[in-house]
């Protein structure tokens, strides 16, 4: 039997909202340590990796590892029947379940739904646990804003790191521009900008993926950008007390 209860069901809804435009069908893996998900977007340049640890749930039980194939679109249809303040419980009974049960619980209403599961044959990628040469922490809303602004000018966005901070730049047909974000150690953790740069990097990415990744900014006030030269970047949103959502994007080749 598998059972996982989110005290804050709104959080689960935010996670689904964050990934719904990146991935269509996903395998949700559950085991004794928690729930995880790994899926590539259809063009195979971006990867979504979610980890939710069992300690973050109000109630968690998973006697045997199981894989649940879900359509994100259908999952969303079910979640639309829940309130943002509901507690949400996911449950399966069988060892090889064909449905995933949902219980939405508020002060005055309990709703039950079953979502049909699918058998998905998905490639799993071995993502190495790497040390990145530049790690930047910055407000997630600021990163969202920069991507939106620079994305108007060109479809590719450059990222350059140095000991002084991080620079985003674009060069398009209409002209070019750059935004430098300065390091600060303000007392407000959500406004902090930190750069750990062992080796500077200069990389280019398709901004439209960043704009999709930024839907996850509702999960955390800070975003962590981890980069090494000529390697995929990782954009990480820490989900407080539960785990994290990591989004990987392959760099563009110099054109």
């Amino acid at each position: 039997m598998f059972e996982a209860k989110f005290e804050d069901g709104g959080l689960f809804k935010k996670i689904v909202e964050a990934i719904k435009e990146l991935v269509k069908n996903v395998n949700l893996e559950a085991n004794g340590t928690g729930i995880s998900l790994q899926a590539m977007d259809t063009s195979h340049v971006a990867l979504v990796a979610l980890q939710l640890n069992e300690k973050g749930f109000k109630k968690y039980r998973c006697e045997k590892s199981l894989t649940m194939g879900l359509s994100i679109e259908n999952l969303q249809k079910i979640l639309k029947c829940s309130g943002n303040d509901d507690q949400i419980t996911l449950r399966t009974q069988d060892e090889e379940p064909t449905t995933l049960s949902f219980t939405f619980e508020s002060k005055n209403r309990i709703s039950e739904f079953q979502l049909n599961l699918m058998s998905l044959d998905q490639e799993q990628l071995g993502v190495p646990d790497t040390e990145y040469s530049s790690v930047v922490r910055m407000p997630s809303n600021e990163f969202t804003k920069i991507c939106r602004e620079l994305g108007n000018i060109n479809e590719a966005i450059g990222i350059e790191t140095s000991k002084e901070g991080i620079k985003f730049y674009v060069k398009g047909d209409i002209g070019e521009g750059q935004v430098s974000v300065k390091i600060n150690d303000t007392e407000k953790p959500e406004e902090r900008v930190e750069c750990e740069v062992d080796e500077p990097v200069n990389l280019s990415f398709a901004v439209r993926y960043f704009n999709l990744f930024n839907k996850a900014s509702a999960l955390s006030s800070q975003v962590i950008l981890s980069m090494s030269q000529d390697q995929p970047l990782v954009i990480e949103y820490i989900i407080e007390e539960m785990g994290s959502l990591k989004l990987y994007l392959a760099p563009k080749i110099n054109d």
Binding site: M40, S43, H44, V45, A46, L47, E123, Q124, L125, G126, V127, P128, A206, Q231, P232, Y248, A250, P251, K252, I253, D255
Partner: peptide, 14 residues
């Protein structure tokens, strides 16, 4: 994406 590299190039399929 003509000049975007696939992630499979970096991460092996397991």
């Amino acid at each position: 994406e003509e000049y975007q590299i696939y992630l499979n190039k970096y991460f092996p399929i397991v």
